[in-house]
């Protein structure tokens, strides 16, 4: 210690600190530009086609071996249900997808909307999960590992679409449940999810996300009077695997139209990038400063206790 001069120490620590500060910041910017896997699959949802038959709900129930529903899937009284907080139906641990009906301002015909996980390019659930239970697969699905889920419910708060549900009824091992794009049974083999296949109206079109995006814009271009000129999910929260076109303004169909265009993680990415730096460099740096600042100072001033401790070392 005594061989290092004050000048050398300061110069070296300043250079090292700068180098470390620069490196992770660059990395963070690189990660922020992720726009999904190039060959990831997606689903184009055309809300103008949905007639609210609930066949997709039945197909999901069967495919995912979910428990028996409270009401038959051809019972349309569920569209009138209003739940806690004046809300329409939401996805639950027993129903990974549901269809809701929305009354429109300018039309006598209602609009039906299927709700399920949108399989974001950069999922907020994934980034919020501290046990790394979530995975975004190259096929495009956002899946999760129930075995490592500790039931903290961070993902439920993080999800901008309020999709992950919780097995509240389970006393011993409550976990998260949500749509997985039928990854295990279908998507992995290149087949469309059960809901998509079951739909009589082909509300949902399955294919490569980038191909479907072209089709979505073509449909709008060919029928400018029919569609709103917006593909919901193209840019929202960094892009979603499932995206929507509609005849009515999206807010009337219960969509959150105030979501940022950037992934949710971008809100905290810059901050998170400097945390490791602060935790590793700052203690060493400031301990050094402190040691240098107090080096050679005469005894008997300042805090006696700290002084004694220093002596002990």
């Amino acid at each position: 210690m005594s061989k290092i001069t004050r000048r050398k120490f300061l110069a070296a620590s300043a250079a090292g600190g700068t180098a470390i500060m620069m490196a992770p910041t660059k990395k963070a910017f690189a990660a922020g530009s992720f726009e999904g896997f190039p060959d990831g699959m997606g689903v184009l949802v055309d809300l103008t086609r949905c007639v609210g038959c609930r066949t997709c709900e039945a197909a999901c129930n069967k495919e995912q071996k979910l428990p028996e529903p409270a009401l038959p899937f051809d019972d349309y009284s569920v569209f009138d249900e209003i739940h806690h907080g004046n809300q329409k139906r939401r996805t639950t641990d027993k129903a990974y997808t549901i269809v809701n009906r929305y009354d429109l301002k300018d039309s006598d015909e209602p609009l039906y909307r299927k709700i399920q996980c949108n399989h974001c390019n950069e999922p907020a659930c994934l980034t919020s999960c501290f046990v790394n239970a979530y995975t975004k697969t190259p096929e495009g699905a956002v899946i999760y590992n129930s075995h490592v889920c500790v039931g903290c419910r961070n993902c439920m708060i993080a999800c901008p679409f309020h999709i992950p549900a919780y097995t509240y009824h389970s006393v011993l091992n409550p976990v998260i449940k949500k749509c997985i794009f039928c990854y295990d049974t279908r998507l992995k083999e290149g087949r469309p999810p059960a809901c998509v296949e079951s739909c009589p109206q082909q509300v949902m079109t399955f294919g490569k996300r980038k191909d479907l995006m072209v089709i979505a814009h073509e449909r709008i271009k060919k029928n400018p009077d029919k569609y709103i000129d917006h593909v919901y999910g193209e840019k929202e929260v960094g892009g979603t695997g499932w995206f929507y076109i509609s005849s009515a303004p999206f807010e009337e169909a219960g969509f959150d139209v105030h979501l940022p265009k950037k992934p949710i993680i971008d809100n905290v990415k810059d901050f998170l990038a400097i945390v490791p730096v602060v935790l590793t460099v700052w203690p060493a740096l400031f301990t050094g400063f402190h040691l240098l600042a107090t080096k050679g100072k005469s005894h008997g001033h300042g805090d006696d206790h700290s002084h004694d401790e220093q002596e002990g070392h």
Binding site: A59, A70, P72, F73, D74, D75
Partner: peptide, 20 residues
């Protein structure tokens, strides 16, 4: 008309939930 397989699929008809 729905088939028996259809009733089973939609949990309707004779396959309707008992709670209901």
């Amino acid at each position: 008309a729905k088939t028996e397989a259809g009733d089973k699929f939609y949990h309707s008809g004779e396959f309707a939930p008992k709670e209901d």
